[in-house]
Simulated assay, not measured.
Amino acid sequence: MRILFIEDDNKTAERVARGLAEAGHVCDVLTDGEDGLFHALRESYDVLVVDRMLPSMDGLSLVRSLRAAGRKTPVLFLTSVGGIDDRVEGLEAGGDDYLVKPFAFSELLARVNALARRPPPVSEQTALQVADLRMDLIRRRVMRGGTEIELQPREFTLLEVLMRNEGRVVTRTMLLERVWDFHFDPKTSVVETHMSRLRAKIDRPFGTPLLHTVRNVGYSLHAPR
């Protein structure tokens, strides 16, 4: 799971990042509100953990801006501001959960895991398109340049995840969780094998690649730049 932690207290940031890494997650840490919003909008994260008191932009404004932009990434507020009115304000701003400092890391980890398990909001999209690649979500058909591409069910799901994250990097861990429902690293090349098969079907016959490998990070699907 990939987590963005926006926190300007270095000791708290180091403690949480270390604990999340030990639990098998990838944690990016930022200390500035505006920088945090920029990355939350540009990158794909499973959960955001956000302090309320931040430089440049406070946590409430950050989350309000995130929701206004249509991003539905689950948000856990982690803050020393813990009154009832403060909690209500945080949830009404678009937060999904609220944890007050000081806190036990085990509780934070449990809350983050619970947020990640929530089903995504129901989308009314019936089709996805990137350049000349089109996916019909109702008929479960994929076409590129007018040519239909036959995909196995797992390949279809893999491509759907990539297309829904057009232009963003999708990590191997994210793919294992979203396509195979693995919440651990099986130490196999299952992702790499399926990506190779997918690339052979959607890229090689058409000349212009849409699927790109981001070395040591993951994969990204986007139109030629």
Rank of each mutant, 00 (worst) to 15 (best):
V81H: 13
E107Y: 08
G33L: 13
M143C: 10
R15G: 05
N113Y: 07
L48A: 09
V169R: 05
D28W: 01
G33V: 13
E177V: 00
N165S: 09
L151H: 10
G95C: 03
G82N: 14
R225C: 01
L137P: 06
V100Y: 11
D181Y: 00
R215G: 04
T208N: 11
L20R: 13
F5E: 14
E14G: 03
V191F: 01
F103A: 10
V217D: 02
R168P: 05
F5S: 13
N10S: 06
M135R: 06
V112N: 06
V88C: 03
E7R: 15
M195D: 11
E89N: 08
H39L: 07
V169W: 07
G94Y: 01
G36F: 12
L109D: 12
L115R: 02
L108T: 12
A110E: 11
R118F: 00
Y98K: 10
W180N: 00
P55S: 14
V26T: 07
T157G: 02
H39E: 10
L91M: 08
E177Y: 00
P102Y: 12
R141F: 08
E43V: 04
S44A: 06
I84C: 02
V161T: 00
N165Y: 06
R215M: 09
G82K: 13
E92D: 05
R140C: 09
M1D: 03
G59C: 15
H25R: 05
L78W: 15
R154V: 06
R140S: 11
E22L: 14
L137H: 05
E177H: 00
L66Y: 01
G83L: 12
G207I: 07
G70E: 07
D181E: 00
G95Y: 02
G145Y: 06
P55N: 13
E124A: 14
E34Y: 10
C27G: 05
R87I: 12
A127F: 08
S196V: 09
F182I: 00
H222G: 06
K101Y: 13
L151T: 07
E160R: 08
S189N: 08
